[in-house]
Design a protein around this nucleic acid. Structure first.
Length: 235
DNA sequence: TAACACCTGTTC
DNA sequence: GAACAGGTGTTA
């Protein structure tokens, strides 16, 4: 597969929200989003090609960088370096909690600016905060002790401070544990992460809350599963 | 703001 | 066969 004439030396790799940015010495940037089932793997060129391999970059090392995505919800794009930030993909993203700009004051303002949306859905909105997905949204709210159906613009004061800290802590911990592997996720070396062993509520409906022992509940919000503790997260 | 669409694979 | 899955964009 030809990727917009990508060539040259990889001179940097960065992440913004759920987007991976691979910087090439020739002035181009490969933007990748893994969607639900995407993987980027680096394997010897002789390795048999997996089904659903949509793109391959030949590396001088003799390895291939392969983009594999059975469900095809992910995407690849190439931009000149100077045009990446203004691209359709990145233009509207909110601050990344592990980058700059995600402050308690920002969060308070973003929450207050909403109209009636549930705080769980707020956390999933990449225009407000870039990088939280369905797993971490539930985990964040459990850590912050906020009920998922709470209206975002009703979250105030000390709750905002707890929410801000929870967002940063949950994401930092997940990255430190190299991701959450429930089904598909692996890193470029094919290794799964460890964070799934530390999930408090996600995918744990019916199990006791580690804090209070109440049964974790599953509800559906915006067609996505939400998990929470009905005792620890009363409001 | 909710529903649905886009896809394939896994599990019940 | 149905329900479900880590995401997001469009439509009503």
């Amino acid at each position: 597969v030809v990727l917009g004439g990508i060539r040259g030396r990889v001179c940097g790799i960065a992440r913004l929200g759920k987007y991976l940015l691979i910087d090439f010495s020739t002035g181009r940037v490969l933007l990748a989003h893994l969607g639900m089932s995407g993987r980027i793997v680096i394997v010897p060129r002789s390795t048999a090609r997996e089904p659903h391999t949509h793109a391959v970059l030949r590396l001088d090392s003799g390895d291939d960088l392969r983009y594999v995505d059975p469900r095809r919800f992910g995407a690849l794009a190439v931009y000149p370096r100077g045009a990446v930030r203004a691209s359709d993909e990145l233009r509207a993203l909110g601050p990344d909690p592990l980058g700059g700009g995600f402050t308690p004051a920002y969060l308070a303002g973003a929450l207050a600016a909403t109209r009636g949306v549930a705080v769980k859905s707020f956390l999933l909105d990449q225009r407000r905060i870039a990088g939280l997905g369905n797993i971490y949204a539930s985990e964040v709210l459990w850590v912050a002790r906020i009920a998922p159906r709470r209206r975002a613009n009703q979250v105030r004061g000390d709750e905002v401070a707890r929410l801000h800290r929870a967002v940063v802590d949950v994401l930092s911990a997940a990255v430190a544990r190299r991701g959450t592997t429930l089904r598909d996720y692996v890193d470029a070396g094919g290794e799964g992460g460890e964070n799934q062993e530390f999930l408090a509520v996600y995918d744990r409906a019916g199990e006791p809350c580690g804090e209070c022992g109440a049964r974790v509940r599953r509800i559906v919000q915006g067609a996505r599963s939400t998990f929470y503790c009905p005792r620890c997260q009363r409001r």
